[in-house]
Design a protein around this nucleic acid. Sequence first.
DNA 1: CTGAAAGCGCTTACAG
DNA 2: CTGAAAGCGCTTACAG
Lengths: 347, 347
Amino acid sequence: MGNSRVTLKDLAKELNLSPSTISRAISGHPAISDATRKLVQQKADELGFTPNSIASSFRKKKTQSIGIIVPKIDIHFHSLVISGIEEYAYSKGYNVTIFQSKDSFEREKEITRILQNRMVEGIIICLSNETKSYAHFKKFTKLGVPVIFYDRVPTNFNANKIVINDYESAFKATEHLIQQGCSRIAHIAGNQSTHIFKDRLEGYKTALKKHKLPIDPSLILETKNLTYEEGAECAKKMLALPESPDGLFCSNDYTAISAIQVFQKAHIKVPEQIAVVGFSNYPISRVIEPNLTTINDRAFQMGQAAASLLIRQIDDTDSFVEFETITLKTDLVVRASSMRKASDTKL
Amino acid sequence: MGNSRVTLKDLAKELNLSPSTISRAISGHPAISDATRKLVQQKADELGFTPNSIASSFRKKKTQSIGIIVPKIDIHFHSLVISGIEEYAYSKGYNVTIFQSKDSFEREKEITRILQNRMVEGIIICLSNETKSYAHFKKFTKLGVPVIFYDRVPTNFNANKIVINDYESAFKATEHLIQQGCSRIAHIAGNQSTHIFKDRLEGYKTALKKHKLPIDPSLILETKNLTYEEGAECAKKMLALPESPDGLFCSNDYTAISAIQVFQKAHIKVPEQIAVVGFSNYPISRVIEPNLTTINDRAFQMGQAAASLLIRQIDDTDSFVEFETITLKTDLVVRASSMRKASDTKL
DNA sequence: CTGAAAGCGCTTACAG
DNA sequence: CTGAAAGCGCTTACAG
């Protein structure tokens, strides 16, 4: 099979023009006459010429590609973020190469090496949960390759970050429960070695304090990974307490949903006896009965924001800004699982 | 910032060796002495040399990268497939660049142009639902770039395909309902212009025929996109029939779940009064009450199989095989939503 | 075991 | 408006 591509030179020979002219005509250089441009275009179509962008990348030292590292692609949050990144990047002519760290620090390091060799122009990453040291990102700063962190971002390390306000969101969620008349509010917390879950716990506590409610340690249940199974365990522990809670704020939707199911099996009514709020607005939250009140964490927008910031930094090579942190708005999506006061839809 | 990379030449100059030798030492060529190899390795680490794989790709005409086109990344099925692809590709040293067609034929064509220019060595794609013509893939055959289709694959077009046996899976699901004692089994079908949904309808019909059950057109409800909302509509239509069905096989899990919820609101017991089976084994199927019986379509394995076939074809440049179709096994995952005979767990 | 040389397919500063 | 020339950073067939 004649699988040798047509090159600029081939076109040049055919048209008795120089490769320089062909190159300029194809890339729309202003100094080329309309007549020539048309001629070249026509011949290119005829011969099926299509520019070799590897050669062009190599020559220009611009690959027009960005790298993404996520722990796992099939976690809905990450796939939404990637979707946002791809959408924005595509509109700007950038390609997106993805890698899964599988929550392995070693693999994450190895991937950064690959990305460096591949000469990506920028990187967007959600850190693996094993990552405690950030030395493997230093090389990119030196090479002028911007790196944007999202969701699980480094602490004590100056960097570009896209985050949501976890503290504020948790505060809103908890205050909503208080306004619905709850006074014994429990919390299913994520791993406290992770920054964002710590913030959510803090927001919960602050809301209680503001409304002069006691902080009862027996109502705060920390999990390792906020799994469906852990949620059920926590819910059972709550029911075993001398006095059950009348409200529950969970650090994600999975634990909220499994808790609701445990309550329902124990013939405890949601929201009448326990009002429940989750976190993340997973698709399942509008499917479960009762529909789950939750925090919309805007994963798609997070991806767009990350890509937009990244490409801005790629283009502004000599700006004075070193790092930027962007905090996105979140929304409390009020649904049936927390609605004890029918009249009080809008608080 | 001194953001100029260290090159082979720099290393060569430092060590008074030729670039050829450095290149060979770095890439592990056997003809290089151990002493030299160590020397080069050491200096490379010292100067922070890391090979420019764009230059290497350009020179070798091997990019070690493959392109994926999916309608949307944040559809769980696709993110699972991508995860399988990435995992396999990574283990073989290939990179994965992703694009979303957004179910637009025009965008899909544009993406194939980009992939051609980027010189990917192979492509894995789930067609957009607008795609009826496959001419935009012919160029890859000519260039010797293998293309693997999965899920939504071309019909009347010779190609590499990874599929599941939709007909057989639907047959299994329907027969399971029959064996659970259902005799009036309804079907919520997907768009009949799509091959896979047609096959599922056929499998359903064949199971009924085999067991001498009548095929009742009023029990077959076609939807456009198998959405949650369409599922609810269909369920309501079923309840409005003179005689309700006692079994329901749905072409995906969303419609199955929304149908269950409609039934439950109408105080119809699942599975006692209507047994329900879905398709795809979405995570939500083991969360909904009762847990949903469904077909495990092995999305992750589909991704791995696609990547494995692709890379095999990239490597075997002069094999006599032109196209390959791989059909993956599916599983009926029996859960509570269809279990009318407690004793009859294994059929 | 090591080196000199050519070249992959573009782009661009320089010249006219 | 067009062309000649150099070069991006590698790899590899050829030679010794």
